[in-house]
Every structure is written in C-alpha cells, then in structure tokens.
Simulated scan of single mutants.
Amino acid sequence: MLKDHAKIIHAIAASEEIIGRKKLQKIVYIAKKLAFPFQERFQFHFYGPYSEELTLRVEELCNMGFLDEVKEKKGGYYQYRYTLTENGKEFLSLNEVSMPNLQECLTDMNNQNARFLELVSTVLYFDTLPKEEVKEKIFTLKSKQRYTDEEVETAYQYIANLREKAGH
C-alpha cells in the first residue's frame, strides 16, 4: 500500500522541494507519461491533467509526518511548498524506490514554471492525436492561457528532451 506513497516521497526528495500544488500535479503526471511507475489516475481538469488520488496521497503523507506542507500567502492567493521531513527521509531510506534518471527529469521540470508545465502536460494528455489536433485542443481548452504556436513547439521539443533524459 505504501509503495505508491514512497514514490511520491521519492519524487519530492529528488526535487528537494516543489512549490505549488498545480506544479506537483503536473510533475507527477509528466513523469508518469515518461514511463516512470507512478500509479495515480489522472483526468483532464481545469488546469490540465489532475489526479484526485495524488491529492489524497499528498494529504496522507503530510498527516503521517513524512511531508511538510507550508502554506504561503502570495499576492492574492495561497501557494503550497512541499519538502521532506526527517521522518520522510527515514521512511524513504527503509522503502527503497528505484527510478533511474528520475532525479534529472524532476530537477529539470521543477525549474520550469507551472504555466509551461500545464502546457506540456496537456500536450502529453492528447499525445495520441496528430500535432495539429493537439494545437487545436490547446487553443480551445486553454484559450485563457493564450499559448502561442511557438510555446506549443517548445513544449514538444521539451518533451523530446525529457524522454531522452528519462532514457525511454
């Protein structure tokens, strides 16, 4: 049961810290699409792929004292910062998770902004469709984000680079 929890702890440990719930959702989704063994199910939601299971797991990990969630007021909204606690580090040392190349991919993703990760995860969500249809979906479903053709191209290139890093 805690195997999937250990993977989430491992992802946050590999990233050192993740700032923002949306960013955490996108990072895990993108890693899953890169064939890393995350089990959470995702549906398409207002901000792109979203997993209720991931939200619940993170909440459980905070309640168990393995993750630290700090709520910070940022302008007109709140943002959440996730880091590993000492108990989380100990738990991870007892529950080895082997995901070669994950750290490099997560570090890279964690350096991107949430808006770009939302675009990347949306492209990956529709990855069975031809590029033109994917663009159409992005421009329709994400019209408020005002993504450009160049940003979509950058997202495709970024995905190719991540796949190379992941070794898949």
Rank of each mutant, 00 (worst) to 15 (best):
M1G: 11
L2Y: 09
K3Y: 09
D4A: 06
D4T: 11
H5Q: 14
I8R: 09
A13E: 14
S15M: 08
R21D: 11
R21Q: 15
Q25H: 02
Q25A: 05
I27L: 07
V28M: 11
A31R: 07
A35E: 14
F36M: 08
F36K: 10
F36A: 07
Q39E: 13
Q43R: 10
F46K: 13
Y47W: 06
S51M: 08
E52V: 02
E52A: 09
L54F: 03
M64C: 08
M64A: 11
F66P: 01
L67R: 06
E69C: 14
E72L: 12
K74R: 14
Y82I: 08
Y82W: 03
L84G: 03
E86A: 13
L92Q: 10
L94G: 09
N95I: 10
V97S: 05
C105V: 02
L106I: 13
T107L: 06
D108P: 00
N110T: 04
N111Q: 15
Q112E: 15
A114G: 01
S121D: 03
V123I: 01
D127R: 10
T140G: 01
R146W: 01
Y147H: 07
A155G: 04
Y156S: 06
Y158L: 00
N161L: 04
L162F: 00
G167N: 13
H168G: 15
